[in-house]
Design a protein around this nucleic acid. Structure first.
Lengths: 225, 225
DNA sequence: GCAAAAGTGTTTTTCCTACACCCATGC
DNA sequence: GCATGGGTGTAGGAAAAACACTTTTGC
């Protein structure tokens, strides 16, 4: 029985929530889109394995990562019995633009427009989305997806992307600012609007402290998709 | 590399939240307390494996069960490299009293008085407790631990056991009744008090429907342990 | 000058919390 | 008749939701 790891990598580019996929370079299913995966080596933990695979295939290092679920349907890999443990990563797309796209055929897909995936990778992605929604509702986890400096409208569209819901910007800004986790900057982002939107930074010390405190970012149920 | 499953079985006896352990019958670590575990067979999923192990070691069937986490430290089993996927079960102790204790050396331990466990089983239990707290805060999951008919005081002491906190019974009953998930019975439980406490049953149809809706059973932070 | 997105405040409602007394019964 | 645990109601405060107008600036 083989033991594999697959990585579900969410990214945010300031507007859309996306997923990183690679074009599979070998049989079976050569040429189709797939999550980043590989086999666990005898002397590494699953976490180390996931980090290694991510590094090898994308050049990414030191990114947020957590275990999602072990998938074990007997026939999930038609060739050989393989159990796959999945890991979810969150990254800021722009930060890692250079490393990507070069060596491997990897590509970002908007969550709403995913291609067909091999094996049970679609189930994996669905579960990861579900968990991201669940977790983001109570933990300030989404900052992993943002660049160091970001604007409130960007943060809001990230939440809206995660929940597939529209939120009221007045209530939204009150809610996020009330956490005390954001530090307003003096400069503005001027690309996406004429007036420009102030940048904010995450207060990293408070982020550490408050990570496990329950925050409530659940959008109101009327607008849930 | 070996692939194993370990089951963390929580039970409630009407008063205390407990954990089911067995005395390990073989080396290494023979004679010490352990979670229920076993190896995954070539033609079974992890879920089937967990259910089989549970059945074999305890006689329990059709119990609530969900995957917790895969543990993979290289040296976690000192003899052979083994990755273990853990599953959490919730059961009503009294319902299954007969099956237990006979064939295997299994025993219920109050969560607050656990013996020393083999390997990394203690970490597994800690993570399971954490997740139970997390999940029970938003899902009506704890009913899996209760008999068909139960009283509000029993339900409350279950929540108090999970969170290690005391709750106000007036606020508690308002909160749980407001979910509309409970159906009041005409008869009373008369063992634990003179006056007797009304039984309630779970409205199973609503339970199915509402399982994924977010409920808020988080105790107030002042009393968290 | 106007279109487009940013930013801001108030009112209403809902939910949570704190809190204290009466009830039914076995002894 | 009293000790024990069961059951209920209310008032105050905090948080969430609904809601609309003004600001800035590139074109």
């Amino acid at each position: 029985m083989l033991l594999a790891v697959d990585c579900i990598i969410f990214g945010f580019d300031g507007t859309d929530l996306k997923l990183l996929l690679i074009k599979r370079g070998f049989e079976p299913e050569k040429g189709r889109w797939s999550l980043m995966g590989g086999f666990v080596q005898p002397k590494e933990t699953l976490e180390q394995s996931a980090a290694r695979i991510l590094k090898e295939l994308t050049g990414l290092e030191d990114v947020y990562m957590e275990q999602l679920h072990a998938f074990s349907e007997v026939e999930r890999d038609p060739i050989e019995r393989t159990v796959s443990v999945t890991y979810t990563s969150l990254i800021d797309i722009n930060k890692y633009k250079k490393q990507l796209n070069n060596d491997f055929h990897s590509e970002w897909f908007p969550l709403k427009k995913l291609p067909s995936l091999i094996f049970d990778h679609r189930d994996m992605v669905e579960m990861a989305k579900e968990k991201l929604r669940y977790k983001a509702a109570f933990h300030p986890i989404v900052f992993e997806l943002l660049p160091e400096k970001f604007t409130l409208p960007q943060l809001q569209s990230l939440y809206e992307g995660i929940y597939g819901a529209l939120m009221d910007k007045r209530n939204f800004s009150r809610k996020v600012l009330s956490t005390g986790l954001l530090i307003k900057q003096k400069d503005k982002e001027r690309l996406s609007s004429k007036r420009g939107a102030f940048y904010y930074k995450l207060d990293k010390r408070k982020y550490q402290t408050k990570f496990n405190s329950f925050l409530n970012f659940i959008p109101n149920p009327n607008n849930l998709n």
